[in-house]
Amino acid sequence: MTIDTSVLNALRPDMTRFAYLLLRDQHAVEDVIQETMLTAIEKQDGFKNKSSLKTWLFSILRNKTIDALRRGKREVNISTLSNDEDDSFEEVLFNHHGAWNLETKPNAWSNPDASFEQKQFWSVFDACLNHLPAQTSRIFMMREFLEFEVEDICKELSLTTSNCWVILHRARTKLRLCLDTKWFSGQGFQASRS
């Protein structure tokens, strides 16, 4: 079957969003999107409609993004990590017994799954992801969006497994706090509900 390039172009915004979250560099993103488009057109005979076009295109994009990450050889430097991150976030969240502080004790989010249907939610979600420090974000995205196993992330970035766990924990905590402030207890959620 022949793929209409306008269909490919319609998927460009989502592809750009995806690649940007991982690469955070507009030039790198444009290169990756272009390579993905070219590969898609070149290999269109391989697309048999078994999966949706978007799924197929994203599997190409995923591989191109991984290649770009590898090409960039942006090794995670442990000293950069600890500088670019503050380890003090746990001290803010917990008291010296390791219990939640009163102000930081997590509240229940009401009907969170309904957010998935709201466009506004996804821009908040992206903003929170882009707000993570670059290295933390990369590791989180490799885990959650590229679905790497933790062992493979460690190998790829020369980190220890426990380092990876700590970074992922930190990423999830920061995202949790960001969504809590910017969506669930903030104006965004209220406004978009009414």
Binding site: K105, P106, P112, D113, F125, F145, R176, L179
Partner: peptide, 13 residues
């Protein structure tokens, strides 16, 4: 609540 939130983020991804 924290666990639900973390799992929600996992689902959101």
């Amino acid at each position: 609540n924290a666990r639900k939130q973390v799992n929600f983020i996992h689902q959101a991804c």
